[in-house]
Amino acid sequence: MQTAWHWLTFTAHLLSTCTAQSFSPVADAFARSRIAPDVLDTPPNMILAAAFGSHPVQLGNELTPTDVINQPVLVWSYLLPATRDPPLFTLIELDLDAPTATNTSFRSVLHWLVYNIPNMDLARGTIQMPYTGSKPDANTGLHRYALLLFRQPARLTLPPVGNPNNPAARIGFDLRSFIQRYNLGQPVAGNFYVAQADAYSTLFWMLAGTPK
């Protein structure tokens, strides 16, 4: 865990220096992975530092469903302005490749949505959709999982959603429409990883039914 935390803080510091430059390694990684334009018009320029225990998220590295069962530790303190009123953020995690990368009829599957997060205090945000880890089904290949952070223009009020334990409540999340409806603009930071089925996710869907 200590190694992952050191990677988080080092990466956050390193990539935050790119904002004053014309080239952003974060935006470039999002473009090469086609997260932008698949679900975003404009990619983030800043890193959203993230780690699942001892497993850091590194702009497209592969993690296993077993690695990401529990929600990650996130760092974005370098984005906070020196103002009296704390800014509010929305955090979203999506699976872009469900049920498969060549059949994205479930796009996007909402894995996590927290809004009205003051500063970097995730625990004080409002949970719209609780975290669930990546669980691609067997023989569906690699899935892209994007973590996106938006700075809100104002405090949000979102309508209630269905039962988060029901896959239907998570399938078909339209990120572009959500951004437009709540005037969120370009994500201020992001990160992503890829994952494919392992023994844990395969067993999960054998017991639960239709994968997401």
Rank of each mutant, 00 (worst) to 15 (best):
P130E: 12
P130F: 11
G162M: 09
P160I: 05
L122K: 14
G141S: 06
L122Y: 09
Q152G: 09
P130R: 13
N139M: 06
A168M: 01
I171N: 08
G141D: 09
R155F: 00
I127N: 10
I179A: 00
H143I: 05
L158A: 02
F178N: 10
A168C: 00
D121I: 05
P160K: 04
A169K: 05
D121L: 12
P153L: 07
P160G: 08
I127T: 15
R176F: 08
V161C: 11
G141I: 10
P153K: 09
M120H: 14
D121W: 08
R170Q: 02
P164V: 03
H143T: 04
I171L: 06
I179K: 00
D121A: 13
L158W: 04
K135R: 15
P130A: 08
G162Q: 10
I171H: 07
P164M: 06
Q152I: 06
A154E: 14
P130Q: 11
Y182V: 12
P136I: 01
Y131M: 07
I179W: 00
N119L: 12
G133I: 00
P159W: 07
A169Q: 02
A138E: 12
V161F: 08
D121P: 06
L149G: 08
Y131L: 06
I117T: 01
M129Q: 08
N163G: 07
N119V: 01
P159V: 10
Y145K: 05
I171C: 04
Y131H: 12
Y131Q: 05
A169N: 06
R151W: 04
Y115D: 04
A168W: 00
Y182T: 07
R151Q: 15
L156V: 09
L156D: 07
I179F: 00
P136C: 08
M129S: 03
P118V: 02
P160Y: 08
I179P: 00
G133F: 02
G125N: 10
